[in-house]
């Protein structure tokens, strides 16, 4: 049959599972995803809109909610570019060069990812807290780190530390160094090599890394909870504000702010899918082995 010749890998009966098995695998996978992923997401929006759009909107424009949103955006706007620069630098030296201790370096870069967020917050308290190593000096110089913006940024940077690098390192490793080497031999400067050769190859991975990093930065709870101080309207980020509203029996408002964060997550995913769809070939070429 012609269809078989067109789709050689999936088309042959011997290489396919029987229909019942296929359907039950699809069914099982979809049920699992629906129960674990979709339902919580739907619940957030149902609860948020439970008292109508007006109540939803009121909850979002309420003064403390607005300042929580502003603070969250500000923190992410500082933390994400920092980790972006770091991620590009780290993946350049790791992917393009061979050197001793590389795997140790990779492990150290990965470390914040598996360290409990609670510990990430706590280390900064131990360092900058009043009874910490630098605490007395900071007080003398009237510098506030924890329970203020710098502490929130530090904790967020820590938690989202590996995101861009993790996305880029495998990508750049796959691509090898031939193109860059050729460019150098042809007389391009380092910056030109990066901009003209490397960047076009990694841009989609980079963008996705940034998006994920941003979503995680805005949504971090455990680490910022330790260093925030929870001052209403001043050091409450959105996830902390959700918790506070929830604790004030203000469930609609809590879920309304939560739905913004969920929306952010969805936008991240949609942008990613759009990229994959639009630049599918390019992506596949760069993401494949």
């Amino acid at each position: 049959m012609p269809a078989e010749t067109i789709a050689p890998s999936g088309g042959r009966p011997a290489l396919r599972e029987p229909l019942w098995l296929r359907l039950s695998l699809i069914g099982g996978a979809l049920t699992f995803l629906a129960v674990f992923l979709l339902l919580p997401l739907i619940l957030v929006f149902v609860q948020a809109l439970g008292h109508g759009v007006e109540a939803y909107w009121d909850a979002l424009v309420e003064q403390d909610a607005v300042s929580a949103i502003q603070l969250t955006v500000l923190v992410a706007a500082i933390a994400v570019p920092l980790n972006l620069v770091f991620g590009v630098a780290a993946s350049w030296c790791i992917a393009k060069f061979e050197f001793r201790g590389k795997s140790l370096l990779i492990t150290l870069i990965d470390l914040p990812f598996s360290v409990s967020p609670v510990i990430s917050g706590m280390v900064y308290v131990l360092l900058f807290g009043l009874n910490g190593w630098l605490g007395p000096w900071l007080i003398d110089h009237n510098i506030k780190i924890i329970f203020a913006l710098p502490g929130l940024v530090l904790a967020t940077v820590f938690v989202t530390f590996p995101f861009v690098a993790r996305e880029l390192i495998p990508l750049m490793q796959e691509q090898g160094t031939e193109e860059e080497e050729a460019a150098v031999v042809l007389g391009a400067s380092g910056w030109q090599v990066f901009r003209r050769v490397t960047l076009p190859n990694i841009k989609w991975g980079l963008l996705y890394g940034v998006l994920l990093c941003n979503a995680r930065a805005m949504g971090e709870f455990g680490a910022v909870s330790v260093v925030s101080g929870h001052i209403r309207g001043m050091t409450n980020t959105m996830p902390l504000h959700v918790e506070i509203l929830y604790n004030e029996y203000n469930f609609v408002a809590a879920f309304a702010v939560a739905s913004l964060l969920a929306l952010l997550a969805l936008v991240t995913l949609v942008v990613k899918s759009l990229l994959e769809w639009r630049y599918g070939d390019e992506l596949a070429a760069s993401a494949r082995h």
Binding site: L84, W191, N214
Partner: peptide, 19 residues
């Protein structure tokens, strides 16, 4: 800045401006 000029940090840029 190089990255920004290439225009694919829209999200972060907007966030920065907001900040």
């Amino acid at each position: 800045f190089g990255l920004l000029r290439r225009g694919f940090l829209g999200v972060t840029l907007a966030a920065g401006a907001l900040g």
